[in-house]
Structure formats: C-alpha cells, structure tokens
Design a protein around this nucleic acid. Structure first.
Lengths: 240, 240
DNA sequence: GTTTGTGAAGTATTTCACAGCC
DNA sequence: GGCTGTGAAATACTTCACAAAC
C-alpha cells in the first residue's frame, strides 16, 4: 500500500487542526467537522486516514487526543529533529530568530556561511561556521534536515554539498527549484511564486458571472455552502 | 477552456527559468531543455503552455524572450501590484525588509497593526497604521493583495476584514488555513508544515531496497535519468 | 534531422454511496 | 439517528505518441 505524496502533505494540517481542537477541549471530532475547519471534504479526510489505519468509531467520530498522537507518530513528530542552516544573510538571520521551529521539535543546531563578514560570528546563540565544516557537523550532531537560505545562484551547489554530506531533507528558501536525488526530499518556500500565481486570477477575473452551462446536477453548491465559511466582519470604514 | 489551478501554479516557475535562460543569453529553448531545468517532463510543459496559445515553432522550440513576455502578460506581471501588510511583529518586519518583492513588481505600500507599541512607528519607510484604517488605505492605494503576518489566533479575523475591504488575494504567513470566499485567492506559507511532511519520509525510509515488483515495462527509469540531475560535489570533509 | 501541439491513453486523486457499526 | 471505512465511480492530471511544421 503506497501512500500518495499529496496525502502525506495533508497530514501536518490535520495535526494542526487537532491541536486546535484539543485546545478548545474537544474530545471527539467527526470527519465533517474536521473538513469544515480545513476546507476539505469529509470523504477526503476519511480516505487519507484510511491509508494508515482505522482510527475512528462509527457513529462517534475520532478521538482528538488519540488521532493526534497517531498522526504525530506517523509523521515522526514525537521526537526532536536537528537542523542545519546554510546561509546567514538577512534571510538566514530571520530564520535563526524565528520562534516557530522549536515548539514543533525542530532545533537549529548549526549555521554555515562562507562570507568572512559573518563566519565565526554568533547569531541566535549559534556560531557561524564555514561550509567546509558541514560534513563534520552533520555527522557529529546527527543532522538529517537542512535549511538553505543562500542566494539563488548558489542554492544548487549548496544542495549538492548537503546531499553529499548525507542530508535527507532540504527546506529551500532560495527562489530556484533545487534538484535532489529521489531519496532526498526538498521543498521550496517562495513567497514571490505564491504571489505570481495569484495575480493570474486577479488579472483574468472573468470566470464568475460567466454563463454557467446549466444548473449543477449534483448538490455541488450545497456541499460548498455546507462548509464553514465565516461571514466577513465589517471593517470600520466599509469598502467602496 | 478552463485552466487547471496546478497549471497556473507552474507558470511562475517557467517565468523564473526563462529569465535565467535569458541571463545566459539563450535565444531559444525546447520543452526538453526547460524540463531538464525544472525537473518536469517536456510533455507537461507543452501541454501547460497549450492552454494559453501556441508559442513555439516546430523543429526549433520556444523563443525565450517572447515566451517570457507572453507568460508575464498571462500572469499579470507586466505591471506593478501594491501590497498591504497586516501584522508588524518580528515576522512582519522581516517581510518589510525582504528585498525580493520589489524587483518582481510587488510594492509594500501600507502596513497595519493594532499593537500600541508599533502603531505610528516607521518600518522600512512605512508608518504603521491601525487596522481601522484598512478599508480607507486599500481604496486609496488600489491595493488588491495583502500579506497576513499576525499570530495564528488572529489570522482568520484579519482575513475576514481584508475580504470585506475588497482584497482579492491573501498571502498568509500564519500557521492556519484561512478561509476565504471562492473569489478571494489565498496561499499559506508555512515552513513548519513543509518540514513536517518531510519528516514522514525520514521516519519511514523503507521504500528503497523494497522488492521491486518487476522491471518497469516502459522506459520509466530512462526518462528519469534523462533529466538533468547534477552530480553532488564532494564536500571537503566527506560524508561518513 | 528536430520539436511542437494535441487527441487519446494512462495514472492519480477525489468523491460517491452504502454496508456495517455504534 | 450518526458516522466510519472503503470499493466503485467520477474527475483531474499527466504522459504518450504521432501528424504537422520547420
């Protein structure tokens, strides 16, 4: 049974939602409720979970606490992970200062840069080392995940170096698609690309009010409306 | 002819690759070359482009400069876009200082926060305004895109407010899936979620060396190898 | 010779719909 | 009555493969 990558990519979202439900003291949740929270269909949630086991109870739903623990275990989140950062420029320093990693078990334990202006300096409690130290530190600190925050032109070379050091996952902040062998996972974070795909829709806004072929056969619109979609609060000034 | 969202999401990557090719003075590019660069199949690139027109020449490929211009026009990138930022905490300030937006035509022209410690203060050349000013500024500066950088707990309320002001696209940095009506696009940037989906593979590494059912029928592996995949450079120290 | 553009074929993913259980 | 888990159906997406163009 091979789990599709899209499914794996959704699991962290389930974890997020379940934590929130736990915070609100919900003991049990149905796939419909979870779907409302995450803007997904109940069937998708049930199908996704079914790749990993049977976690629910008919007529009741899922126990929030136990489903959360199960998913954390599946994702490997019930342990800590050491991270290396390569690139300690403006962006790299912001990443070192980002408080969102540690509470999730991601610990930045080494920082690398070859710029003489930053090497040997200390940022966020870490002394910046030259990249020549990479392999040594990766081995010494059992680092399997790296964050790349170097300029685009250097990103691929850095990724190659990381791969050769045995790194198995790369979170890339450089605006290029870095290539890795299949056994090394990579994800790129690129706010500009996200903006650029949205401007397509702002530019080509003609899909609403376009002639609907016919009334949808299935209760498609009803399903859409059934999902939670909070009514916008009115801003003080009011929009034109 | 309805363009799938996955296709739109790939167009910015084509733009990136074409800019790089132009920088290297390539005049023409084939779908195969582009595919090598971006780790995609040539057929996918041709099919994607075919949703928008016929841009290539048989036997030759695509003119780099003109395909670039066409794609920029399709995405609405041959103009500037004003952006509003909501949330001027640590993350918001890093965003204000990020130099990657302006060269792509994205201009942060207003910043909002209700924290008395930052309101009226100046960051990155912008004076922080209270969110009560949102609707007014959005209208005055024709802002259609907003960046949300507030804590998770406030993100949905802020998104609702933005929607009610007429904002049409939201780039959300808060670690929650914000809900928007269908006519308002939203993208969430969440490095922790990206890391959490990768740890799944680090935790469950048993898919290689697993018995291959049989030799692939089609030249699947050949196709994979055909794509550019640069050999990792050796690090100074060498990996264990 | 090369490479595009595209229907058709093949996969992948999502959704349906219902038996089974609480 | 409500809800899960899941094969089957439907939809979406990718890749093939080849005629047409150069």
């Amino acid at each position: 049974m091979e789990v599709p990558e899209v499914v794996v990519d959704r699991l962290p979202q389930y974890v997020r939602a379940l934590r929130e439900l736990r915070r609100r003291s919900h003991k049990v949740v149905s796939s419909t409720e979870l779907g409302d929270l995450l803007q997904m269909t109940p069937a998708q949630i049930r199908k996704d979970l079914s790749y990993f086991g049977r976690f629910g109870k008919q007529g009741r739903g899922y126990n929030v606490e136990s489903l959360l623990e199960q998913l954390k275990s599946i994702l490997g989140l019930n342990r800590g992970w050491n991270l290396a950062l390569v690139g300690v420029g403006r962006l790299g320093r912001a990443i070192l200062g980002y408080p969102g990693f540690a509470p999730e078990g991601f610990h930045l334990v080494a920082a690398f840069d070859d710029d003489p202006k930053v090497v040997r300096q200390s940022f966020g409690g870490l002394i910046v080392q030259p990249t020549s130290q990479l392999a040594e530190e990766v081995a010494a600190k059992s680092i399997r995940i790296a964050i790349v925050a170097v300029p685009a032109a250097q990103a691929q070379a850095v990724a190659d170096q990381l791969v050769s050091c045995g790194i198995r996952a790369i979170l890339n902040y450089a605006p290029v698609a870095v290539q890795t062998p299949p056994e090394v996972k990579a994800r790129t974070i690129d706010p500009v690309v996200a903006l650029q795909s949205m401007t397509y829709y702002l530019t080509n806004e003609s899909r609403r009010s376009a002639s609907p072929k016919e009334t949808p056969l299935r209760d498609e619109s009803a399903a859409r409306d059934a999902r939670v979609r909070r009514a916008p609060e009115r801003g003080k000034g009011g929009a034109p």
